[in-house]
């Protein structure tokens, strides 16, 4: 009786583990996510001040996932990433505008605007996929960078639409001054983006991405159509960026070209994705939260050094790229493997 009950429970457990596995979570990864989800109720994380750090962490983490879909799989660093995120943010902010001084005054609710922004960003990603199709590695990155600069230029100069460098003040997503609901929104976005990207990369699309990223000649000779897979990859990654841009616009309720679209914002995401480990998707999530806390702490400890976080990102990224290109996620996988072998040795034999 007891034994069957136990076996039943065990079967149930493996059932849940299977479902989790299918959407890209290991049991320990899921536990971390649950911890993250209850954190806003535990002091000191429940303070509004630290909640903002958590929100920013999830925002960066979700970006790193979308960025890694391109950088870690098809091996193209999208230097226009922040600009495309900004495009999503601006689209939603412009559509939400009611001020008579700007030409568009649709006053659309951010809940819809965010998705339109994501679609616009996804469309630019689609174009970018075609533009960079014939280019390899660095050249594709530079092309993406130029597209980003062009978008930044538009945001600066279409003053009737964007107020230029003065920026926009879009309405907030929720009518609350509490940060906690926003945290759950961005956490949901992060998990959704992760699950979608994970499902895609688990399918044969992921194999095509990696093959194209590692040896395009051999990939094509094996029948992979680079247009289809690269364009799809860019579109999905940029769609996610655009959606996150919408969140940014209606959470921070302030939007300037410099603050969202600048290349240094891409570099920040790039650093987190690379330190987290390319081609794992979850490496960036694991890195983003401790990083935000570390850097915010530094910022309050050493207030006189505004660019310090970029220097730290840069140094760490270079160290990781030279000495441990698999990054944090690669290390975790390695350690997990070692523990498994150790356990088997302990349990096996007589």
């Amino acid at each position: 009786m007891k034994i069957t009950e136990l076996a039943g429970r065990k079967r149930k457990m493996t059932g849940i583990t299977n479902i989790l596995q299918r959407v890209g979570f290991s049991p320990s990864g899921f536990i971390l996510l649950v911890v993250l989800a209850v954190l806003p109720f535990i002091p000191p994380f429940s303070s509004e001040f630290i909640l903002r750090w958590l929100i920013f962490g999830a925002f960066l983490a979700a970006q790193a996932v979308a960025f890694d879909l391109t950088a870690g799989y098809i091996n193209v660093v999208n230097f226009g990433f922040a600009a495309i995120l900004g495009l999503g943010a601006y689209t939603s902010a412009i559509l939400a505008n009611t001020s008579p001084y700007l030409i568009v005054q649709t006053g659309l609710t951010p809940w819809i605007g965010m998705f339109i922004g994501a679609i616009v960003a996804g469309f630019v990603g689609f174009i970018l996929g075609f533009l960079t199709l014939r280019l390899r590695g660095l050249y594709a990155a530079i092309m993406a960078w130029f597209v980003g600069i062009a978008i930044l230029g538009l945001a600066r100069n279409l003053i009737k639409l964007t107020r230029g460098s003065l920026g926009l003040s879009p309405p907030s997503l929720l009518e609350t001054s509490s940060n906690r609901p926003y945290f759950y929104i961005i956490l949901t976005m992060m998990v959704a983006i992760y699950i979608i990207c994970k499902i895609v990369t688990r399918s044969h699309y992921g194999l095509a991405f990696r093959a194209l990223g590692q040896n395009i000649d051999a990939a094509r000779a094996s029948g992979i159509n680079p247009t289809k897979y690269r364009v799809f990859n860019f579109t999905l990654s940029c769609f996610c960026a655009g959606l996150l841009g919408g969140f940014y616009a209606h959470y921070f309720v302030s939007l300037t070209p410099q603050a969202v679209m600048h290349t240094s914002k891409t570099v920040e995401v790039l650093a987190i994705a690379f330190i987290g480990g390319r081609g794992f998707l979850w490496g960036g999530i694991l890195t983003a939260f401790p990083f935000v806390f570390f850097i915010e702490y530094l910022r309050s400890a050493l207030p006189g050094l505004p660019g310090l976080h970029l220097v730290i990102y840069g140094v760490l990224m270079v160290l990781v790229m030279i000495y441990y290109p698999k990054g944090l996620a690669g290390f975790v996988v390695w350690a997990r493997e070692k523990i498994k072998i150790y356990k088997e040795e302990k349990n096996g034999g007589f």
Binding site: Q214, N215, A218, A219, A221
Partner: peptide, 11 residues
């Protein structure tokens, strides 16, 4: 096949 065979290194 390729003269210098370098298929997909990280697969």
């Amino acid at each position: 096949t390729f003269q210098i065979s370098r298929p997909f290194p990280r697969l």
